[in-house]
Measured scan of single mutants.
Amino acid sequence: EPELVFKVRVRTKDGRELEIEVSAEDLEKLLEALPDIEEVEIEEVEP
């Protein structure tokens, strides 16, 4: 069974934007590691 992958769009407080694809596990780590995120948009990517 393929692992869930999420497309994550992040905007930081200083206005930088970042778009990455991460696994569910990595997404959890990412959110814990970035306390200064202003906006996060997450969508599931079809395998």
Rank of each mutant, 00 (worst) to 15 (best):
E1H: 12
E1P: 12
E1R: 14
E1W: 12
E1S: 12
P2G: 10
P2T: 07
P2M: 06
P2V: 07
E3P: 06
E3L: 06
E3Y: 05
E3A: 04
E3R: 07
E3W: 03
E3M: 05
L4N: 05
L4Y: 11
L4Q: 07
L4R: 12
L4T: 07
V5L: 10
V5Q: 11
V5F: 05
V5I: 15
V5T: 07
V5Y: 05
F6D: 11
F6W: 03
F6R: 15
F6P: 05
F6N: 13
K7N: 05
K7R: 10
K7Q: 06
K7L: 06
K7W: 01
V8W: 00
V8M: 00
V8Y: 00
V8H: 00
V8L: 02
R9H: 03
R9L: 01
V10I: 13
V10H: 01
R11S: 03
R11Y: 01
R11V: 06
T12Q: 04
T12Y: 14
T12D: 03
T12F: 15
K13L: 06
K13T: 07
K13R: 10
K13D: 02
K13G: 04
K13I: 07
K13H: 05
D14R: 02
D14F: 03
D14G: 06
G15K: 02
G15H: 02
G15S: 01
G15D: 01
G15T: 01
R16M: 08
R16P: 01
R16Y: 08
R16D: 04
R16G: 05
E17Q: 11
E17R: 11
E17N: 10
L18H: 05
E19D: 06
E19F: 14
E19C: 09
E19Y: 14
I20A: 03
I20W: 14
I20R: 02
I20M: 10
I20C: 13
I20E: 01
I20F: 15
I20G: 01
E21C: 15
E21T: 14
E21H: 11
E21A: 06
V22P: 00
V22W: 01
V22D: 00
S23L: 07
S23W: 06
S23K: 10
S23C: 09
S23F: 07
S23N: 10
A24C: 11
A24Q: 08
A24M: 11
A24S: 07
A24E: 05
E25P: 07
E25T: 12
E25V: 10
E25S: 13
E25D: 09
E25Q: 11
D26P: 00
D26T: 05
D26W: 09
L27V: 03
L27I: 05
L27G: 00
L27N: 00
L27Y: 04
L27F: 05
L27P: 00
L27D: 00
L27R: 01
E28M: 14
E28W: 14
E28N: 09
E28A: 13
K29V: 04
K29L: 08
K29R: 10
K29E: 05
K29A: 10
K29C: 07
K29T: 06
L30K: 01
L30M: 07
L30A: 03
L30C: 07
L30Y: 08
L30W: 11
L31Y: 04
L31S: 01
L31M: 06
L31W: 06
L31I: 06
L31T: 02
L31K: 03
E32R: 14
E32G: 09
E32C: 15
E32V: 07
A33C: 15
A33E: 08
A33L: 11
A33G: 09
A33W: 12
A33V: 07
A33R: 10
L34D: 04
L34H: 05
L34C: 12
L34T: 05
L34N: 07
P35I: 15
P35F: 15
P35K: 15
P35M: 14
D36F: 07
D36Y: 07
D36E: 08
I37F: 13
I37V: 10
I37T: 05
I37H: 10
I37A: 10
I37Q: 04
I37M: 06
E38R: 06
E38D: 10
E38S: 10
E38H: 08
E38T: 09
E38A: 09
E39H: 13
E39L: 15
E39M: 14
E39P: 03
V40D: 02
V40R: 02
E41W: 15
E41Y: 13
E41F: 13
E41D: 08
E41K: 09
E41L: 12
I42S: 02
I42V: 07
E43S: 11
E43N: 08
E43R: 12
E43G: 07
E43D: 05
E43I: 15
E44T: 10
E44I: 15
E44L: 15
E44K: 11
E44F: 13
V45A: 07
V45T: 07
V45E: 05
V45F: 09
V45R: 08
E46W: 13
E46T: 13
P47K: 11
P47L: 11
P47G: 09
P47Y: 08
P47D: 08
